[in-house]
Amino acid sequence: MLVVENVTKKFGGLRALSKVNVAVKKGEILGLIGPNGSGKTTLFNVISGFYHPEEGRIRLQGEDITRLKPHQIARKGVGRTFQIVRPFGDMTVLDNILVSGLFSVPRGEAHRKIRDRCHKILKIAHLTERMNVPADALSIAEKRRLEIARALALDPQLLLLDETMAGMTHTEVDQALEMTSRIRKEFGLTIIFVEHVMRAIMAISERIVVLSEGTKIAEGSPKEVSENEQVLNAYLGHRRTS
């Protein structure tokens, strides 16, 4: 589905990503973890075309998308959310979703069909009652759901979720997990998600990739990763040997 090959992204002298390799299979749900500043969001930015890497290639279903513009990548079926929510504040919730709905479809598709799809997504994201409210007026949990809804309206094959559960209460995390599993099944999605809520990662990811200081330090099942020495070091510091 998506293959990230040897990707290096530098900001001045800082190597935000260095020779990172990540592959995700169709239908898979991949967790991406790592300490702050390890390059998780940068990787998302590189995949979605926001940044272009200095080295390496990104292929989506065999096609090289490394040099494409973000809107071209979006139309090829890559949807994403933002860690710090960025709704179109003065537009209504429905209009927010309609933007990606309108722009993802091939020219000439009936507006009624797009609208029906957007309404369906509103329902899944539990935002139907709030659809005529300006997005600025939503609560933070609602804004997070709007982020996901907006990405879904793109009709993506691959969904990049960037900390959609940060700062949520226990119950809200449960709801978000339930929603993630549901959309994945209903839309047949492949998902890569960045998360700090460990309970969420362990619960739904099939495979986990761990980044630290821009390099991949581990990869494997949740169980393998949680027992990996290097991962523990990166998160908790080195064990004292006395």
Binding site: S48, H71, A74, V99, S104, R150
Partner: peptide, 8 residues
């Protein structure tokens, strides 16, 4: 930037 990500 977000508009671009949403396919615009």
């Amino acid at each position: 930037d977000v508009a671009e990500i949403m396919g615009v």
